[in-house]
Design a binder for these strands. Structure first.
Lengths: 187, 187
DNA sequence: GTCTATAGAGTGATAGAC
DNA sequence: GTCTATCACTCTATAGAC
């Protein structure tokens, strides 16, 4: 039995994302991609003439768009409760560390050479938007930057540790800690 | 011109470690490994009959032995200043995030399936040893556990972020923060 | 001869490109 | 689906130490 091919490009990209998350860039073979998407190699090259690399770039773009819409944008525009909404969103999105941050994983792997610019942009934007939101909570600009950096790194570390010790509650504890820390103005 | 082959098994493993760090497990091809170590395939398979997987296992064992000797052991045996020495050691070892933690990188990648047991053991031991040292600084057992988890995850996140934004000072700031936090008994 | 370490051509399988 | 390059890996041969 064969899966019905996904209808649109966005659906294909969502499937690609899961393959890259689970197998990494090098580990994701075209046959695995073909199987996961239900598309033949020909169709894949029709949609992504640049091959695997273009597929991964499209995934990163999609991820960035999602975070811009759901997290970075609300933070930067000082939407009410945007910081708490961010913690809710990442807990859900990363499934308490069961699902990796593909951008973070690429930053640690050889994907950094290929996708360095997008990796940098994603994390810089996250830092910047969060610092802006923290400043609106009363942090000095300097303290807001430092605290934002701590939170963004903490989320990434929480994913690594939760996966390493196979304990999603470890990620949840990290989020709870960071959430508290984002509330307090003085460390 | 040919590089002189490394003298001992430990030297080979150190070279292997750098290849896996830079290329990942899937990305590290045998030709790259052969080139980096200066050993032909025959020699590599003589030392590691299990192939690439055995090479990576040997690297992980070597890493674990190094941390046990330099970090986990001193922490667990309550050596004086072991916590500060740990922060110095990891800053040096990970070169302020320029060098990845191979165990953490494997935890995020597909290496988790192959090396899950060793990944788990490494992080569990780190957590445990650090919690023990924190308890000796006056933390309650419960608080020591939570704080240790925060610090171990923080270090990993610091590496991810520093590499992502290509800024080693970001890692150094994270270490400074965690170092302060390890001193204070009350959060 | 035996043991240990070396090299690298050759194997089938499978990768990504098209 | 076809193609070619390259993959992980095997095998045979060689060298020196003892």
């Amino acid at each position: 039995m064969t899966l019905r091919p996904p209808s649109g490009r966005t659906d294909v990209i969502a499937l690609l994302a899961e393959v890259f998350r689970e197998q990494g860039f090098e580990g994701a073979t075209l046959s695995a991609i073909s199987k996961a998407t239900g598309l033949g190699k020909g169709s894949l090259y029709h949609h992504f003439p640049g091959g695997k690399e273009e597929m991964a770039q499209a995934v990163l773009d999609e991820i960035d768009a999602w975070f811009e819409r759901e997290v970075f944008g609300p933070l930067a525009s000082l939407a009410p409760d945007a910081i708490d909404a961010m913690f809710d969103a990442v807990t859900d999105y990363f499934r308490s560390g069961r699902r990796v941050c593909l951008v973070g994983a690429f930053a640690l792997s050889d994907g950094r050479a290929r996708f360095g610019a997008k990796i940098h942009a994603y994390f810089h934007r996250w830092n910047e938007a969060l610092a802006h939101a923290l400043a609106a909570r009363g942090y000095s600009p300097r303290k807001a930057r430092v605290r934002a950096e701590e939170i963004v790194a903490g989320i990434q570390g929480g994913i690594v540790l939760a996966r390493a010790i196979n304990d999603p509650t470890s990620f949840d504890r990290m989020i709870a800690r960071l959430r508290r820390r984002a509330r307090r103005q003085t460390p």
